[in-house]
Amino acid sequence: MKTIRKAMLASLSLSCLLFGAAHANPRADALMKSFDTNGDGKISTDEWLGNKRRFQKIDANGDGFVTPEELAAAFDNAAAGAGPAGEGGAGGAKANSSEPHKVPLFQLKNVNSQAFLSGKTPKEQMHAIGMQESGLTAVFPQGGGCHPIDHVFGEVWQGGPDKNKLHSGADIPAGYGEPIHAMADGVVVAKADGGGEGPRKNRGVLIVLQHSPQDSGLPVWSYTLYSHFSKAPELEIGQRVRMGEYLGPNGRSGVPGASREPHLHLSAFIGESPRYAVANDTVVPEGGRFIDPIALFRGQLPMDTALMRELPAEQKLIPAAYKRKSGEIVPAGAKLIWPFLCKG
C-alpha cells in the first residue's frame, strides 16, 4: 500500500509540475473558458477571437491549437514583460487614461462574445441578444428631408459573402463623400481601416463611439458604429466628439458587390456598464445587446428588440431628431440626431 501511495503522490507531483502553471493563472483559465466553445480543453484557430498573429505566438508547438499550458506560459511571459497574451496584453491591469473603461475580453461579465465577434454564431443566439427585425420606422418632424434606411436592422442578408446572415445594422444610402456626423456626444473607442479580421472585415473603414447616459440622455451606456467611409476619420482613440461633429466622408469601403451604392452601415448596441473590450476592431460591451438604431430615438427603456416587435403598429413610428444643413437641431434640445444632415 505504501508503494502504491508513493507512486500516486509522485504522479500527482509530476502533474502539478506539468500543468500547475495553467491552473494557477486565473486569467488564462478565464480566457480558455471564454474561447473554448466546444469544450475540448483547447482553443482552435476558428474559436480564437483575438488577433491571429497573437494566436501564432502563443501556439508554441505550432499545431494549430492553444492549450491551457501554452496560454498560461504566454500570460507569465507577458507579466514578465516578454510580450502580449491574448487581447489586451498581460490582462490590462493598468488602465489607459484615454480608455478608462476598456478591459480585456475575458474580464467582461454577462456577455456573449461569440455573438459580437464570430460571423458563424447561430441565428437563435443572435436573436437572443437582440439581432432581429424590430419593425421600427424613423419619421422626421417638419418634413425632415433626411436620407431613409433601405436595408433594415436584423433582416436576413442576401448579398455577397454574408448571404443568409443577419444584418447587424441599418443601411442608409447617401452620396459618395457626403459628410457623416456623430449622433450624440461620445468618445471614440475603436476604429479600423478595413483590413481587419472576423465579421467586421466587410465593414471597411469604420469608427465606434461610446455614449454615456449623460451624453445621449438614455438610461444606459450605448454605442454607435459607423462604417463604409471612403477614407479614415481623422479622430483618435479616446477623443471626445460632440453631437453633430463631422466624422468622415460616406463611401463604400468593404462593400461586397459592384452594384451596391455608397451607404452608411449604422449599428447600435447597449451595455449594462461602461466596461467594454476591443478585439479585431470590434467593440464588445459588458452585458451587451444589439438594438435597432431607430430604438435609440425612443429616449427611454425598453429598447430590447423582442419588446419592440410587440409594440402596436402606431408605436413603431419613432420620431427621429436631426440636424439641418443650416445647423438647426429639430426638435431643439435633442441629444441624439440622424447621422446625415437633412434638407428640411
Rank of each mutant, 00 (worst) to 15 (best):
F297S: 11
E178M: 10
P319L: 06
H181I: 15
A72C: 04
D59A: 04
G287R: 05
V187N: 06
Q56T: 14
D292P: 00
E261F: 05
P312E: 12
T67K: 00
G248N: 07
P293C: 09
I270F: 15
I172A: 01
G198Y: 05
T121P: 08
L317K: 15
G143R: 11
K201F: 05
D193I: 10
G86L: 01
A334W: 00
A30T: 07
T224L: 03
M32H: 04
A90W: 02
W338P: 04
A72V: 00
F297V: 04
T3Q: 11
L336G: 09
E310N: 06
P285Y: 15
G198P: 02
H211E: 11
K325F: 12
K343G: 06
G88L: 05
L12Q: 09
T45F: 06
H211D: 11
Q114S: 15
R275V: 15
F140V: 14
A115K: 01
A79E: 11
A334T: 11
N38K: 06
S168G: 13
K6P: 05
K201H: 12
S326W: 02
L311G: 03
K52S: 15
P262C: 08
K316I: 04
F55E: 00
P122H: 10
V284H: 00
W48N: 03
R275M: 12
V220S: 12
G145D: 15
R240C: 09
V189I: 09
C342K: 05
K191Y: 06
P100S: 05
P148Q: 13
A279R: 09
D36K: 00
N250F: 07
V152D: 11
G92S: 09
